[in-house]
Design a protein around this nucleic acid. Structure first.
Length: 353
DNA sequence: TAGGCCATCTGGTCCT
DNA sequence: AGGACCAGATGGCCTA
């Protein structure tokens, strides 16, 4: 929705015509919804318009009835303090005008909030114009992403793609997890705990550490599943048509790897892979597992940025690489100059030194 | 049809 | 007094 309910609009709308003030703003579905809702609500007020005096007198009567219930004695004063002002037609109009202005402000405020959320969607992994993440999933994914990037900077070591995706998907719903995996062209089954254990055995220490972090936190207090579970079991419940099912029986018996009681981390992780899609991954399967599943991400020379000098070589690991067409991960269109600058900076982080 | 997600309205509270 | 912010309520849309 792009409509902006200006104060002029609100001010120009005669309260007497409140049932139709939104008719001046036809447009999108949202706008039409707004019109419908406003119309419905205004029609309620419209009823008040017709007999507003009666309506507010009824309110007063209700209050009086309450007083009678409370005090149960007609001889006692019905109300203490200043007597309620009678709602005259003029006061009713002012009230409606204030309410309309407040509603317009609130709409604009929420639109601003949604705009900010949309901006956030564009800078977290797996941005898609067609399949938008929900608000809550966007926030969770962003939190994971920030955590993952921070962890990379802190440790100066690059995780493998699997660990990164696991971190990204922490606490996310199953559909979102599938979406992230799909965006990264990963088989969600590779997140399975068993696989993770095997992966970790193949990992370079840094990656293993990263994965350990991945499973060392949980999202407490989240609502009903699939949200907020520390284990990754929901990740395995992928749609059959989305991914291979050769190992399905195996995964169905998978045991949770995660210690769901650990409060050490409250958010998911996400790899530096999406922001601008410029990271290079080469696929050189070096193990049977990797040949089957793995797209192990290798962050070139990520070390040394956050770590002590001379730490960089840690990242020139022998970990397998994969080449991921980043345009599939995130669309570049719609990114602002600022975002591109940020992407360039991130690239520098992972490619320099 | 139930549940999830969303936009909007609304009244309350706090701040300027 | 008026605006910002918040949370609850409500109803629409969509999907499994």
């Amino acid at each position: 929705m792009t409509k902006s309910y200006t104060e002029e609009t609100m001010m120009s709308s005669d309260p007497q015509e409140s049932a139709t003030w939104t008719d001046e703003c036809p447009g999108s579905q949202d706008e039409q919804d707004t019109e419908k809702k406003n119309g419905a609500l205004d029609s309620m007020h419209g009823d008040l318009d017709e007999d507003e005096e009666d309506g507010f007198n009824r309110l007063d009567e209700d209050d009086d009835e309450e007083d009678e219930e409370e005090e149960g004695d007609d001889q006692k004063p019905k109300r203490r303090g200043p007597k309620k002002k009678k709602m005259t037609k003029a006061r009713m109009q002012r009230f409606k005008m204030r309410r309309q202005k407040a509603n317009a402000r609130e709409r604009n405020r929420m639109h601003g909030l949604n705009d900010a959320l949309e901006s956030l969607r564009k800078v977290v992994p797996c941005y898609s114009k067609t399949q938008k993440l929900s608000k809550i999933e966007t926030l969770r994914l962003a939190k994971n992403y920030i955590w993952a990037l921070s962890e990379i900077l802190r440790s100066g070591k690059s995780p493998d793609l699997m660990s990164f995706v696991q971190a990204l998907c922490k606490g996310l719903s199953q559909p979102t997890t599938n979406l992230v995996a799909g965006c990264l062209q990963l088989n969600p089954r590779t997140f399975l705990p068993e696989q993770t254990q095997e992966i970790q055995s193949h990992m370079q220490p840094a990656s293993a550490s990263f994965a350990a972090h991945t499973y060392s936190y949980q999202t407490p207090g989240l609502p009903s599943p699939p949200y907020g579970t520390m284990d990754s079991s929901h990740i395995f419940h992928v749609k059959p048509h989305s991914y291979g099912s050769a190992l399905e029986p195996f995964f169905e018996t998978a045991l949770p790897l995660t210690d769901c009681t650990s409060p050490s981390f409250d958010g998911p992780l996400s790899p530096p892979l999406s922001v601008n899609g410029n990271f290079s991954f080469k696929h050189e399967p070096s193990s049977e597992f990797e040949k089957n599943y793995a797209f192990t991400m290798h962050y070139q020379a990520a070390a040394g940025l956050a770590g002590p000098p001379g730490h960089a070589p840690l990242y020139a690991s022998s970990a397998p690489r994969c080449e991921i067409p980043m345009e599939n991960i995130m669309s570049y269109e719609g990114h602002t100059h600022h975002e591109r600058v940020m992407n360039a900076q991130l690239n520098a982080i992972f490619h320099d030194s």
